[in-house]
Amino acid sequence: MSNPLQLEVERLLALGRTPEALAAGEAMASDWARQGQPLRALALCRVLLQLEPAHTRTPQLLADLYARPDAPAKGAPPAAAATLPRVPLFSQLGREPFMALLGALELRTFKAGQNLITEGEPGRSMFALADGQVDVVRLLEGGERRTLASMGEGEFFGEIALVSESPRLASVVATRHTVALELIRTRLERIALRYPAVGETVRTFYRERLLANVLRSNPVFTTLPPEQRQALARCFELRLVDAGTVIIEQGQKGDGLYLLLQGQCTPVLRHPDGKQSAFSSLREGDVFGEISLLLGQPASATVRAETPCHLLRLGRDAFEQNLASQPRVRAALMRLGTERLLHISKLLSGRAALEGDLRV
């Protein structure tokens, strides 16, 4: 069944560049923007810009309502706009960068069953759903396809592609007619050259979204209240490393706690006789580096990137400030570290490795 946004988009495009089409679209976009439906308004604004590239009233209105509050335009709407929902990424920008980013968006429509993103393909863009619904689907070992989540209006996804050409980790499939806004990395890079703050805003957006997912799902951090997880997210530093990079060196003092966002790492134990034993691979969401931080000891194993990896690092000082005083988090890290030390002890003594997925 058609929805209001789909119908309005189709009607305006069918009318073409006429005063009636522009006036109707402008009024509808204004209504949606003021009612707290910014992505629908942004999508309709893109249609207006297709019909009339020089159109400025709707982009200016959206910027006045949804751009960063500390950078209002002269004569902008009153502070009531502060009660409107914030738009991820966009509402962190001042008025001019906001309008530049809006101009870089591409309006896309998808039929039910059509892929917005295909697993394994190089990522080139991020999407925001203005209307419709999609499923996130991943291909498991053995060929099974599993639906991981469903998303609807207002959701953002694919942000990894804004900072990396890494292959897509899952497919995103429309389950009904869907209208989406696509932000392509190369267009974003051109805007960032003109407005350097855009690049930093995107990196912060990317880091916080990925970290929020990890902190929400990783058992080490689930005991933290949401506001503390948000505060902790600001302390992590994003690192992109190439395959073959040594992240932690056995015998050296650990410099922080690491979260693996994307990619695969292998911990390797070097025996006194020079032989090496590899542990189970570390994958998305895994934590490492906790033994050195908690016990003040040199790193118990070397951790090397097997593929290009996206990591988040919490430095020693930030760890002490944010986590060392959290009894439940500290206990979870101690359990994890004790498991790993026990496994190392058995390897060094020549005994068989423990069953299961025990990691260093």
Rank of each mutant, 00 (worst) to 15 (best):
Q297E: 10
S277F: 00
G350A: 02
A324G: 08
G315P: 12
A299G: 04
V303L: 14
Q321Y: 03
L342Q: 11
A324I: 10
R328Y: 07
E320W: 03
L282E: 00
T338I: 03
L333H: 09
G274Y: 11
G289H: 14
A299S: 14
M334G: 04
L312E: 02
R335N: 07
T307D: 03
E339N: 09
G274W: 07
F279Q: 01
H271T: 03
A278C: 10
E306I: 00
Q297A: 15
D286K: 10
D273M: 01
G315A: 13
K346W: 04
A331V: 05
E355H: 07
L311Y: 13
M334E: 09
G337H: 02
D273H: 03
K346V: 14
L348D: 06
F288A: 05
D273N: 12
T307I: 12
L293I: 01
N322K: 14
R335W: 09
A278S: 15
S281W: 04
G289C: 09
L333W: 04
A332C: 13
N322M: 13
L311Q: 05
Q321C: 02
L295C: 13
F279H: 06
R270A: 05
H343V: 00
K275F: 00
L294A: 13
D286V: 01
L354H: 06
L347S: 12
L282R: 06
L312M: 15
R316F: 10
P308D: 07
H310I: 08
E339I: 07
E339R: 15
P298G: 01
L336P: 02
E290Q: 14
S292F: 01
G274S: 08
H310Y: 13
L311M: 04
E320M: 07
L336R: 12
A318D: 05
L282F: 03
E339Q: 13
L282H: 04
P272M: 05
R330V: 00
D286P: 07
L347C: 12
L342D: 02
Q321W: 01
D286L: 07
D273W: 03
